[in-house]
Design a protein around this nucleic acid. Structure first.
Lengths: 292, 292
DNA sequence: CGCTGTCATACCCGGCCGGTATCACCGCGG
DNA sequence: CCGCGGTGATACCGGCCGGGTATGACAGCG
């Protein structure tokens, strides 16, 4: 059976592609690390690394193990955290959500849930773009609000909460802001107003003229200054400034906000919250496409 | 960081609720096991087990860790198996499917995939009821055909392939077999023909008059003998005997056959098969609700 | 009040994990 | 051609820890 320590060592080497640096990162000396990796390869009877002159490369099998090991190490950290939190307060939940998104929906979910008998106390954890997945995976959160198709939902159970149109957020003074509706064609390649660029899953940005966005307050500022525009779900209207204008995008894909949680979670508290959310979803008229 | 060994030990104790039996199962003596669990509890600073007079019970935190640990151990076994298989043949896939279901769909999927350039060689692994999930989780399979809502799809990525009606499979001579369509009400509580009972996720059976079914051949035999009937998806017609009859159930929920795979799988071969499956799904006229 | 069955404690031993020192090898530059 | 720096592998050693045996503490029970 693979030991956690071996996986940790292997991930370090596979990421650094350098034994000495990996050893330093792990806080051990290089020879024991070499030996540990050799033992791992012997026990699996698989070549994981190609030792060339000048450096190390991953074999195909090594790449597979790297993916698997990362997931296992995340799950292990998650197990420890969840166990500790279960011991601390049995009726507490941590909900991760994008900072600044879905004010109303979140408010409604929390209010409705709090009204239930024996409702778990819910701690809200605000995190940056797409960080919710990591929070769920490593056990810092029990449940998260995420958005399809933006967030990576692979590996989680989900409950759909709200589907809404996307809108373009523009500087109030811009000519396009006068329009009552827009299309993707209208907003692409506007010379003086490039579309803002969000980070991808890995944190990198695709090339383009627009500014690189890290969080919502920065985006709001840049739009207000007339430097960029952004495409967001309709409920983002709730945090608009006076200097902002919003126009629906008729042909942009709809965005679905979902409640997500780790699939093997059998927690009573998560189940209760999901049940609450399901009921919310069945009477969506009050929140769907709500206008400010 | 939690070690695999500790998790293995804890799972054994949590399942047996008995140190000596758990130690025997693990192939070690009882005292080291006691010590290991104590160390685990000390390092987590959490009480996992309640040692009463006469036996052991799990605390809430212990229950949480049990769930997490089982998932981690499965993932660890999966990692080893997948790594070994990646090393053995880089362009091979194992597909798990229910024995006897979806002949045509599977055949079409395999044929279409084999026609692709650089197609991975696909090994088909037939397994019993709901075993596919375990096969995927512990790395014996890379991809599986499963059915919603019967199979537990939590934690997997899926691609829908085929949605079909359910049909009642009856002994050919039975009066109900003459009907061209049936409802759930028609077949529930038929005195001389109780509905067969399938195992649940945990392998147990819910109580009822019908026989307990383990596999499809046994079911076929029992139906042919006039001892039971069963409700299955329409494509099951393809394996019917002369002694069988099938009638569509107008009000039974539809069954969707999906291709499922572990969410973090970044394998080229899985991606290619999924792409093939997506294309199948886009031209569904030939297979959807296919009648024999 | 022993007897039984439970888990915990005490103690010992061997293996392995990690450290230091060193080697083998390669590329490179004088 | 020959050191030199830098790579990972090897050799060896010491301490810790995981595992074993023997035994204890304690509760239930006849």
């Amino acid at each position: 059976m693979l030991e956690t320590r071996e996986l940790r060592y292997f991930v370090a080497v596979a990421e650094e592609l350098h034994f000495s640096r990996a050893a330093e990162r792990l806080g051990i000396a290089q020879p024991p690390l070499s030996r540990a990796i050799q033992q791992l390869e012997r026990r699996l009877d698989v070549a994981l690394l190609e030792r060339n002159r000048r450096g190390v490369t991953l074999t195909g099998a090594g790449q597979v193990l790297l993916d698997e090991a990362r997931a296992i190490l995340d799950a292990t950290a998650a197990a420890a955290r969840r166990t500790r939190r279960a011991a601390a307060g049995t009726n507490r939940l941590t909900l991760a959500t994008k900072a600044g998104a879905n004010h109303k929906l979140l408010r409604k979910l929390l209010d409705t849930h709090a009204a239930e008998p024996d409702a778990a106390e819910i701690e809200v954890l605000l995190c940056g773009m797409g960080e919710q997945a990591r929070m769920l995976r490593d056990g810092r959160a029990d449940v998260a609000l995420m958005q399809r198709p933006f967030d990576a939902l692979a590996g989680f159970d989900t409950e759909e909460l709200l589907t809404e149109q996307q809108v373009a957020i523009l500087p109030a003074g811009h000519p396009l802001a006068a329009r009552t509706s827009l299309t993707m064609a209208d907003i692409s390649n506007v010379p003086d107003l490039p579309v803002a660029r969000w980070p991808r899953q890995d944190g990198s940005y695709e090339p383009g003229p627009g500014p690189e966005i890290h969080d919502q307050s920065q985006l709001a500022q840049l739009i207000a200054l007339g430097r960029t525009m952004a495409v967001l779900c309709a409920s983002s209207r709730s945090w608009l400034w006076n200097a902002h204008a919003a126009a629906p995008l008729t042909d942009a894909p709809h965005v679905t906000t979902v409640l997500a949680w780790p699939p093997h979670s059998r927690s009573r508290a998560v189940a209760a919250l999901v049940r609450t959310a399901t009921q919310l979803q069945q009477e969506p008229t009050k929140t769907r496409n709500a206008q400010p």
